[in-house]
Design a protein around this nucleic acid. Structure first.
Lengths: 190, 190
DNA sequence: AAGAGAGTAGACAGGTCTGTCTGGTATCGT
DNA sequence: ACGATACCAGACAGACCTGTCTACTCTCTT
């Protein structure tokens, strides 16, 4: 057997193009406003091919969310070595840098969740899974840094992270950036 | 001249019913997924009447956002008397209580903004206006409490507020509730 | 008395949405 | 050589969307 026996992981050029195009459009314009026709047109893929790889649009949205999660996990894994404290700070520094950029449109998970009210929906479950991973990442880094209350502080950092992504999307980036720095020092000191 | 000479403020039973129905549906299910037909059906209003009061759906959405802002301002104004510090705490206590309820679906402003990517859109501007009011409210209460850095701390509180509304929508309410309390004490202790 | 304004019911136009289906081509493993 | 798989182009169905329009009723103001 070849390397990739995983069920859903089968890749193909057309599928990748669809997913990449969908990611770009969904992030920039939202999920419900972007139609299948537009995605396949910009991806240069036939409609039958699209429905061959994704049984429905919701499956594509779920794949989009899952893909974004994988990208974030890969980005964290590829981060330069350092102490847990340094890594934690680097994560927030990266979000701040990215959030201040002109292409920033908020957090794909938070934005997509706003369009899927039902918590039981597969898309929402994929989002919930990524949020658990994020919180656990914070907790592990805090614990590795010897923080006395890693569990609760991780919850606070998630709170801060959500405020960050919303603020960078809706408010003045410079103001949000300094607020995040200040909040981090107050939270981690306390 | 009678009391109400303000341009847009003219009220009517049918208009109120439309706005109230739209608020309920938009909040629970999102803006783009709820159509005009459904709103007028549930509001018991003819289509011509709807378009008589609201030139387009976007005008209704803008009215929805503006109305939510007015409700929040009224709620704060109707709060029991107390010191600035007590009032600030009461605001966060109220959000926590409300956010833990079963009907909570996140912040209407944040959720609606996720469906309107263009910052120049009237809907987005109405949202931005409410966010400025919120931040200034925090700043005034902090200043009234004699906080040494009311400006920057207000930004942090807004950060925390956004984390709160997102967290209560997507995560376990109990966990978020304790995290907010803890974060508040750490941030305000400074 | 008369007209303006608010209301109702519902048909209609023109567009967009998701998803299906037809029909044909190319590549690849066996 | 052959069957499976991936891909293309595009028509089509059926639903839903926003917004317009006709035609009529009721009530208030002047």
């Amino acid at each position: 057997m070849s390397g990739e026996t995983l069920k859903e992981r089968r890749s193909s050029p057309a599928r990748d193009r669809v997913l990449q195009t969908a990611a770009r459009l969904f992030y920039r314009e939202g999920v419900h406003t972007v139609g299948i026709d537009r995605i396949i047109a910009e991806a240069g893929v036939a409609k039958a091919t699209f429905y061959h790889h994704f049984p429905s649009k919701d499956d594509l949205v779920r794949a989009y969310v899952t893909e974004q999660g994988a990208l974030q996990r890969a980005a964290v894994a590829a981060m330069p070595e350092g102490s847990p404290r340094e890594r934690l700070m680097a994560i927030f520094a990266f979000m701040t840098e990215f959030g201040a950029g002109p292409a920033y449109r908020g957090c794909p998970f938070v934005n997509t969740a706003a369009e899927y009210p039902d918590p039981a929906h597969p898309v929402r479950q994929a989002i919930a899974e990524h949020r658990r991973w994020t919180r656990d990442l914070y907790r592990d880094l805090l614990a590795g840094d010897g923080h006395p209350d890693a569990e609760r502080t991780a919850d606070i950092l998630l709170l801060l992270r959500d405020g960050l992504v919303v603020g960078f999307d809706l408010d003045d980036p410079a103001t949000v950036g300094t607020a995040v720095q200040e909040a981090l020092s107050r939270v981690l000191a306390g």
